[in-house]
Every structure is written in structure tokens, then in C-alpha cells.
Design a protein around this nucleic acid. Structure first.
Length: 318
DNA sequence: AAACACCGCAACCGCCATTAG
DNA sequence: ACTAATGGCGGTTGCGGTGTT
């Protein structure tokens, strides 16, 4: 990694670009031994240099030895959420959204666990995404984010439409790339690291790729199979450009029959948000956009808050 | 142009689990 | 076995940026 360039980028970050923040940080130095608030470029460089030379861990002593007047916790957080070389920043992609929705449905607010399946994303970033985007949609639908109603909207509307969107984009991408191997097209190639995690083994046959056993194997390869108390994340597809949750919801009107039907529900989805009440949305979409999807409540194998992207995907193929 | 409201995100806080002595 | 230190996690807050009136 080009450390110099990284530092330049940090210097341009919102937190660092503020003269008032720097002044506040400087002022706080007089208030005690430990500093708080936004990190300065100098502090970042101290931390990065120290970790480059000595490694991470033992954060309290690290902070002292590096000459940082910060708590060990603060140093650790700064490193993990911002300074780490492999940290990804920017828009959450559609496949990442799908994963977050899927994994959250299984594990709830286990942000660090969810983050393990989104390479480069931090638990903090995923948590922020959930709070700012997902909870906003719940608010717009006038239901609680933890309510069954909202979970129904997510699994019957949001996730299927994300899948449709991803399919459409993947189809558009492969249409312009005749050299693409058929198997890759069929199994939905994934462009993001999150997607790549699941299709790490590119050669698996399409059918096997979708089999739960196969995806289980994929998870085990990434250390996700140890926790037998949790269902495993679904294998999802992706080839698409970065986008945000809102535009994804705006989404999928060009993605085939079900999406075309969804596009007719322009009183329920227009602009970039879900509008109307959750009940209106579900009532109009369960007969159109989600036609062909399983009746999750009758599948029997699902707990109240458990469902699988594989089921959504498989039924969309029918 | 100014005031206000809202949003997104970095950072902090408090709690709990684990580890070292 | 006990205690203190440390690490990790989820929840919350505060601030800067941006959009709206």
C-alpha cells in the first residue's frame, strides 16, 4: 500500500478536513493526559508506522509506546475502522446489501459476525448502514424495524427485488460479453469481494453451487462453518456497479416478468424509497413482484426470522 | 444568503468475555 | 480461585456536510 497516498486521503477525509476539529483536538490536549475526538494526520501516521514495525495488539501499551495520547481502545478502533490497509470504503453494493439483509435475518445485530462475510467492511460501517438506511425504510413504512411486518417486507419485497436487480445487471453485463463462460453466467458471477467470497470456487457446477450443502462447504472454507448453532448465509449472486439501497429499491423494472409486474406498482414504489404502509406494500407485491416466491410461512423449516436467499433465488428461476 | 432540519459517519461509552499474573 | 488488564462488541452520541425553506 502506498502509505503516503493513504495519508493524503486521510487528510482529505471529512474529519480531518475540518480546521475546527483540529482546533478542538488541540484544545483537548490541555484537558488531560488522554486526547479524544477526531484523529489528526500526525496521530494516524504514528499509529500506522508503529503497527507496521511492531504489529498490532496490546493496544494500551501500543498507544504509550507509539507516543499516542490515546486510549488503547481508541487506537484499536481507529486502526480497525479506518487505517487498516484492507478496509473498504464507499457505497454498499447490492450484493453486500443482500448479504447484510440475509445475515441480519439470521443473526440479528451481530455486526462483527456479519462483517466477517463482507471483506473489507467493518462492523461499524455495517451497523451504520443498518441504522441509517434500513431503519429509515422501516420508518417510512411506518413499522418497527424489528417487527414481523418489516421482516416480511424485507424478505418478500426488498430482497427479491435486489436479486432481480442483480440478475438484470448481470444479464446486461454478459450480453455485452459474449466470451463469458456459460457456467459463470448461470451461476451469477460476483464482482465484489463479498460476492467473491461465496464464489471463491468458481468451478463448481451451477446446480451444486446452489445446493445448501455446497454453500455450506463454501462457508466452511471461510471459517464460517464452526458455528453450528447458526444457519449459514446464502450464496448470492452479483455482478453490478456500486449503488445505494435506495436506488436498488427503485430498481428492477427491467428484470423480467416479475419485475415488470413490480414496476406497475408505481404507487408502492416510486422514486427511491418504499412508500405507503407495510401492509399496502405487501398486499400489492405479494401478488405481483413476488409471484413465484415460496410461501415462507408454510415451508415449515424456517423459524420466524429465518429464511434463505437460496429459496428466493430458486423460486425466481422457476 | 441565511437559517434550519436532516443525514451519514467517526468516535466514544459501557458492558461482557477472555487472558494473564 | 481470584483479580486486574485487555480485547471485543453493540449501542449511542456528536459533529460536519448537505439539502430545503
Amino acid at each position: 500500500m502506498d502509505l503516503e497516498m493513504e495519508m493524503m486521503g486521510m487528510a482529505m477525509s471529512p474529519a480531518m478536513s475540518s480546521a475546527t476539529a483540529a482546533a478542538a483536538a488541540a484544545a483537548s490536549e490541555d484537558e488531560g493526559d488522554l486526547r479524544r475526538g477526531p484523529w489528526t494526520v500526525e496521530e494516524d501516521m504514528l499509529l500506522v508506522d508503529y503497527i507496521a514495525n511492531h504489529g498490532e495488539g496490546r493496544w494500551n501499551s501500543l498507544a504509550r509506546c507509539a507516543g499516542l495520547r490515546r486510549t488503547g481502545k481508541s487506537c484499536r478502533l481507529r486502526w480497525l475502522n479506518y487505517l487498516r490497509p484492507d478496509v473498504r470504503r464507499g457505497n454498499i453494493t447490492a450484493d453486500e446489501q443482500l448479504l447484510i439483509l440475509d445475515l441480519h435475518s439470521r443473526w440479528g445485530n451481530r455486526w462483527s459476525k456479519i462483517a466477517q462475510y463482507l471483506p473489507g467492511r467493518t462492523d461499524n460501517e455495517i451497523k451504520n448502514y443498518w441504522r441509517t438506511r434500513v431503519q429509515k425504510h422501516a420508518k417510512q413504512l411506518r413499522c418497527d424495524v424489528n417487527s414481523k411486518e418489516f421482516r416480511d417486507v424485507v424478505r418478500h419485497v426488498w430482497m427479491p427485488r435486489l436479486v432481480e436487480r442483480i440478475q438484470a445487471d448481470a444479464a446486461a453485463a454478459t450480453a455485452g460479453d459474449v466470451a463469458a463462460p456459460p457456467a459463470v453466467t448461470a451461476t451469477r458471477s460476483m464482482s465484489s469481494p463479498a460476492g467473491a467470497m461465496y464464489l471463491h470456487h468458481q468451478q463448481i457446477p451451477p446446480a451444486a453451487a446452489m445446493a445448501p450443502a455446497a454453500s455450506s462447504e463454501l462457508y466452511r472454507h471461510h471459517g464460517g462453518g464452526g458455528d453450528t448453532s447458526c444457519s449459514e448465509p446464502s450464496q448470492v449472486a452479483v455482478t453490478m456497479s456500486p449503488d445505494d439501497a435506495s436506488s436498488t429499491l427503485r430498481s428492477s423494472s427491467s428484470a423480467g416478468g416479475t419485475a415488470a409486474a413490480a414496476a406497475e406498482n408505481d404507487h408502492t414504489i416510486h422514486g427511491d424509497v418504499l412508500s405507503g404502509s407495510w401492509s399496502e406494500l405487501l398486499a400489492t407485491t405479494t401478488t405481483a413482484a413476488t409471484a413465484g416466491l415460496p410461501d415462507f410461512d408454510e415451508l415449515g423449516d424456517f423459524e420466524d426470522n429465518l429464511w434463505s436467499l437460496e429459496d428466493i433465488w430458486l423460486h425466481q428461476q422457476c
